[in-house]
Each structure stands twice: as structure tokens, then as C-alpha cells.
């Protein structure tokens, strides 16, 4: 990947929920065009990190810079406008809408400010075409008119990616896009994420599936109990004794991957 600086810089990021220090002074950079894996055992603070980057939570301390501007504390819809797309660990489709309408909703990102939204129609040909294009990219065209609530999980995950892509994101946050997928769906999802990366989108992914995470990510950051434990290439991190101790346990990488 051609890296011309960081698209996302996280410095000293902390989040406290009452007495719980969910994230503790975490710092890392995500380079342009890079796929960075955010790993760690359950409760390590991965999703909390995600939520701070995407604006759901305001950090207790620390700063986030995205695409050259400081963004910590901005609301999720502002982050979406700036070009941060995300998916959810527990899928959140707009269940009462069709698959195409789900994508069209996000395609409207530039129409939700000022008084425009009251005077512009959403169901237009360009918007429908745009949605179909994105559904084609994730392989869901045949379900376009289907009610989104009725899709199986794997398709929900791809629908969420299509919806995130509708924001024309510079950065994509993928929260466990592989969890609950069948074997053949995993390979398909891996291919999709690679193709997104090839098209120039920077990707930060949280992953439990070690095999996939290690093969997709160019670099990984490992969190444990809210702290950054290690950072580096997948090979280096997988060989780090501290990581094996804290995250993979005594059983090693194979058991950890199989145990999820």
C-alpha cells in the first residue's frame, strides 16, 4: 500500500465508565490505504475504541485526528459526513425497509442538513442506481427489493458494508464482520474487504477470528484490559510472548482461533 501519512491518529485515548477503565491511554496510527486489525480478548476495549472513533462515545481523555482534523467528541452523524463508515458487531439493519432503501438512506448523507431534506425527494433514479451499484459490489443485488429484516446474518453483514460504503467513506470501521459467518461466507467476506482496500479505503477492523485477522491485516494492534499490549506486523505480534500469554493463553494461536 502507498502510505502518505496517517488518516487516523489516536493519542492517549481513554474511556472510563464509572469505576471501569474500559480504554486506558491507547495510541495508534492508521495509515492511508492500510488495513489495521484491532485485536484483543473479550472486554479488552476494542468496541469502546470503535465507538469513540465513530463518535458514539466521547473520550474521557485523549485525542482523535481523522483526515487532518480533530474529531474526538463529534457526533456519529458528523463522523459519517466526514467519511467514516462503520458496521456493527450486532447487526443493525433498518429492518422495516427494503435492502435497497437501507443503502439509499446512507446515500442521502448530503441531504440531511439545512432545510433541504424537506424539499427533496429520495426515491429518484440516480439514488436507486447508486444503491444498486453498491449492492452489486457486495453481491446483494438479487435481494434489493427484499425486506432487510428477513435476510440471513451473512447478508446483513454485507448489507451493513454496502450502507457504510454509501457514505463514500475514507475510513471503514468493521466490527467483527466475520462472526457468525459460514465457512464459504468467510472467504467471500475476505475477498470483499480486500477489494475495498484495493479501491483505496482505509480499514480498521475488530476481529475475533484470528486466522482471518492475521491474514487480512497489514498491521495489528493488540489491546488487553483497555491497554495497548503490542503493535506490529501480524507475524511479530503472534510471536510476542506477552501477547500469547495475555490474549491467546497457554494454548496458543490455534486454540484461540478455534475457541471463538
Amino acid at each position: 500500500m502507498t502510505g502518505d501519512g496517517a488518516i487516523l491518529s489516536v493519542r492517549g485515548l481513554s474511556k472510563r465508565f464509572g469505576g471501569l477503565q474500559a480504554v486506558d491511554r491507547v495510541s495508534f496510527d492508521l495509515m492511508r490505504g492500510e488495513i489495521l486489525g484491532l485485536l484483543g480478548p473479550n472486554g479488552a476495549g476494542k468496541t469502546t475504541c470503535f465507538n469513540m472513533i465513530s463518535g458514539v462515545h466521547r473520550p474521557t481523555e485523549g485525542t482523535i485526528h481523522f483526515d487532518g482534523r480533530r474529531t474526538d467528541g463529534l457526533e456519529p452523524h458528523r463522523m459519517a459526513e466526514l467519511g467514516v463508515g462503520r458496521t456493527f458487531q450486532i447487526v443493525r439493519p433498518f429492518a422495516s425497509m427494503t435492502v435497497a432503501e437501507n443503502v439509499m438512506t446512507a446515500l442521502g448523507r448530503s441531504n440531511y442538513r439545512g432545510i433541504h431534506p424537506l424539499f427533496r425527494r429520495w426515491d429518484t433514479k440516480p439514488c436507486r442506481d447508486g444503491a444498486m451499484e453498491l449492492l452489486e459490489r457486495v453481491g446483494l443485488t438479487s435481494y434489493a427489493a427484499r425486506n432487510a429484516g428477513q435476510l440471513p446474518l451473512g447478508d446483513h453483514r454485507r448489507l451493513e458494508i454496502a450502507r457504510a460504503l454509501a457514505l463514500a467513506p475514507k475510513l471503514l470501521l468493521l466490527d467483527e464482520s466475520f462472526s457468525g459467518l459460514r465457512h464459504e461466507e468467510v472467504a467471500r467476506m475476505e475477498g470483499l474487504i480486500r477489494s475495498l482496500s484495493d479501491s483505496g479505503i482505509s480499514i480498521l477492523l475488530i476481529e475475533h477470528n484470528m486466522k482471518v485477522a492475521m491474514s487480512l491485516s497489514q498491521r495489528v494492534v493488540v489491546l488487553d484490559h483497555g491497554r495497548k499490549l503490542a503493535e506490529g506486523s501480524p507475524e511479530a505480534v503472534a510471536a510476542d510472548p506477552e501477547v500469547i500469554e495475555a490474549y491467546l493463553g497457554k494454548g496458543g494461536i490455534v486454540d484461540a482461533a478455534g475457541g471463538v
Binding site: E81, P93, F94, M97, G108
Partner: peptide
């Protein structure tokens, strides 16, 4: 459409802009 999205899922709506 924005209202429908908010009704369906507020978090997903806000992360859609």
C-alpha cells in the same frame, strides 16, 4: 426517509449521517 431510519434504528441512522 431519515425519520423512518431513526424509527428503525437510531444508532444505525446516526452512523449513516
Amino acid at each position: 426517509l431519515a425519520c423512518r431510519a431513526v424509527a428503525a434504528d437510531e444508532s444505525a441512522a446516526s452512523s449513516s449521517g
